[in-house]
Computed example of a mutant assay.
Amino acid sequence: MRDLDNSSRGRQAAEYAATADLAAMRVDYGVAHFGSGEDTDLDETWVAGGWEPLLRHWIEQATAVGAAEPNAMVLATVSLASGSPRPVSRTVLCKGLSPEGVTFYTNYDSAKGGQLAEIPFAAATFLWPALGRQIHVRGPVDKVPDEVTTVYWRSRPRDSQLGAWASHQSRPIGSRAEMDRVLAETTARFADVDDIPVPPRWGGYLLRPDEVEFWQGRRGRLHNRIRVRIDAGRQIVDRLQP
């Protein structure tokens, strides 16, 4: 019994040590430099022309410093599968940006597609650790028109088009080998087709923000947070405490 207790205490000590290491992890954000420019403090004037130009500018700056997939965003939806609302998140790519909102594409029969059909609201977070910046976009979601989906589809690499046809997104499959077999069959199916059509249950969504928050890291956790709320076409801008 004593040996078992000692073993248990050893595991607890190891777990605590690992937790302590995580607790000690932090970055004290300072002033970042981009080329010859300086990252001055974010303030309300930066969104005077609307939320979309600043989001676009920050994506461009993330691209300039070599951030991996600077248009990646964590998309959160709400699932009712368990009988009560539960948040579900995953990373997708922003493939369109306009004053109307943020566009992304997926299989409409995927988990996220089913969740958006039930509760057509979402939140998305863009994160660029190298720049010490985040942007949170929240609001209702609509499907984009078929013609918008078609234009984007034609710009996709052929391998990505074949993958969209081969995958029943979010559904279980027995093995990677089975997935590879389905892809090979799909590739053969379209071997003589120059322009692969859009799958019937595949397309885009437009997240139309009613709230956008810009976050800029600063020393001592006193970060800059500017929130833009959109109400009947009017912008309401607030500074939030960190």
Rank of each mutant, 00 (worst) to 15 (best):
R219E: 14
T106E: 08
L116H: 02
E178Y: 10
R156E: 09
A24K: 14
D194L: 11
H168G: 05
L97Y: 02
Q12P: 00
S175K: 04
R225K: 06
Y29H: 14
A72N: 09
W51P: 00
F126T: 04
D41S: 09
S8M: 11
P87T: 01
S175H: 04
T187A: 13
R171M: 15
R208E: 02
V102F: 11
A111D: 10
V137A: 03
W202M: 03
D231N: 11
P140S: 06
R189M: 13
G50C: 08
M1T: 12
P157F: 04
L183Y: 06
A24D: 10
P145N: 04
T125Q: 15
N107F: 00
R218E: 02
A18N: 06
M73S: 01
P242Q: 11
E15Q: 15
V193C: 15
N224F: 12
Q61K: 14
A188T: 12
G49W: 02
R239C: 10
G163T: 05
V212F: 02
R176T: 09
L22W: 02
A191S: 15
D210P: 04
R9T: 09
S175Q: 02
V65E: 08
Y108W: 13
E38P: 00
D5Y: 09
D210F: 01
E118G: 14
G66I: 02
L97D: 06
Y16M: 12
G50I: 05
T45F: 03
F104H: 05
D28N: 15
A48G: 03
L93W: 03
A177D: 06
G114K: 07
D41R: 14
A122F: 04
P200E: 13
T187V: 07
L97K: 06
N71Q: 13
E100L: 15
V151G: 05
V193S: 09
H223C: 03
A123L: 01
